[in-house]
Design a protein around this nucleic acid. Structure first.
Lengths: 260, 260
DNA sequence: GAGTGGTCTAGACCACCAC
DNA sequence: TGGTGGTCTAGACCACTCA
């Protein structure tokens, strides 16, 4: 509980960036560069899908060698925040131009190809945040929210029932019509229309029994086992911006996961 | 369908290692070094938990610079095959000296600390491989197998019912007694006693209804929703060596997953 | 051919650990 | 104090893309 000891000995700074404060925790140069690039992403200096300056340019801007910038970009690419394309440049990762429809969806059919899923919007409402949702999303209970319910179909059969909650403050222009007419990934829409890029997500997975309300749209009998997937998604700066609860019918599909 | 064109032009090899064949697919030097180190792991030249030679030593042995060896080791460390310890050396990853009991288990309690799980062995039998298991594990139907059934408890309550199948040929000395007396991670036992190290695993997750046979040990009513986690584990060289089917009671626990 | 990222090298120095 | 991995630099060359 006592304050950190004052630096009463001479400090030899490695360089200007090295120690902004009294060296509370040593961080190598390339991590500081990583932080600066992250800042550019967060402030929107470089938008999703756009290219960032070349390594030499960034090295000149930050006053370090190309190798140091390279290592910073390596980490950001490993985090899926940047995408390197040899001969072309380095680009901000985006959900809008994905090969696969849903980057975060781990659902796989038992047989056959990864099967593109059809989408059916059930509703899109303005709501007030219930306490439990507000808590998870760092909001106050009663704050305005958008609630979306949709179905995903595979081969004509409903497979996923999604309930999605978004903070109303960030997505003011999001309407049923806008959702209806939109093609492509949902996260791509949030990105291009509202400038909110999903960076990572946490999922909590359970087995639950289908309730009346969810059994009907999924065309299963109440009490059937369903996979409950609760996803909290974050944008830059670990800010939670989406809560989602999916109910998966895993009769002919499974949730795939790779462990290392 | 035509054979690849013969190399009728002079080839200037980068170095001895660079092109063992007629350069069928270009692979950078550090990946070839990675392959050589992997070979050392696979053949048991360096065993789990042991240290591998220093970067300078390896660089000398392979006739490349330290930086190239470093990049190879970087990738192997990212794959969780090696562990770097500054000032000490680089070590072969092991399941035997894990902080956490189960490295691959993603089960988390709703409240409280990650809770160490108690283990209860139900049985351990010699079996003949059923066709579906044989296929997944690249064996022939009828090949000898070991079948283990166990329960994991949290706070006195049964939470996980595991059925584990292992190829009999690899684990000849594995007996009920050996399992009973063993402390520490199961994969640690396979590693120290049988020299088989699990490198990665694939899981297929579903929601299922509890059957009579599984409801009893888990102390739930038949028909209750359970999480079914089918895991196929691989050792070096992507060789499947374990099939496991866990049934999780997710009333007070969940399966956690992080998406990037 | 110019510009981008990708590889490889060599050397200097730092941080950590064990003796 | 010596050995290990970790960082940073500078420069050469390779592979890919596009005008």
């Amino acid at each position: 509980m006592s304050p950190p000891p004052a630096a009463d000995h001479p400090v030899t700074p490695l360089n200007e960036l090295a120690r902004a404060e009294l060296a509370p925790a040593f961080s190598p140069l390339y991590r500081q560069i990583k932080g600066l690039i992250l800042q550019g992403l967060q402030t929107g200096e470089w938008k999703a899908g756009e290219g960032i300056p070349s390594e030499v340019e960034l090295a000149a801007r930050f006053g370090v060698s190309q190798g140091t910038v390279r290592k910073a970009i390596d980490e950001l690419a490993a985090d899926n925040l940047l995408v390197r394309r040899q001969g072309k440049g380095t680009f901000v990762a985006t959900h809008a131009e994905q090969q696969q429809q849903y980057r975060f969806l781990r659902l796989t059919p038992d047989a056959g190809a990864p099967a593109s899923l059809g989408r059916q919007l059930l509703h899109c409402r303005r709501q007030r945040a219930p306490a439990w949702i507000a808590k998870l999303m760092h909001l106050r209970a009663g704050d305005p929210m958008i609630e979306i319910r949709r179905l995903l179909h595979s081969g004509g059969q409903p497979v996923v029932l999604d309930d999605i909650w978004l903070p109303g403050s960030l997505f003011k222009g999001l309407t049923t019509e806008r959702l209806q007419e939109h093609r492509g990934p949902f996260y791509g829409l949030l990105e291009t229309e509202f400038g909110v890029h999903m960076v990572r997500a946490q999922e909590k997975i359970r087995a639950v029994a289908a309730e009346e309300e969810s059994a009907a749209p999924l065309q299963v009998t109440p009490g059937s086992p369903l996979l409950s997937v609760e996803r909290l998604s974050f944008t830059y700066g670990d800010k939670p911006v989406e809560l989602r609860r999916g109910l998966y019918n895993t009769t002919h599909h499974f949730y795939r996961n790779d462990l290392h």
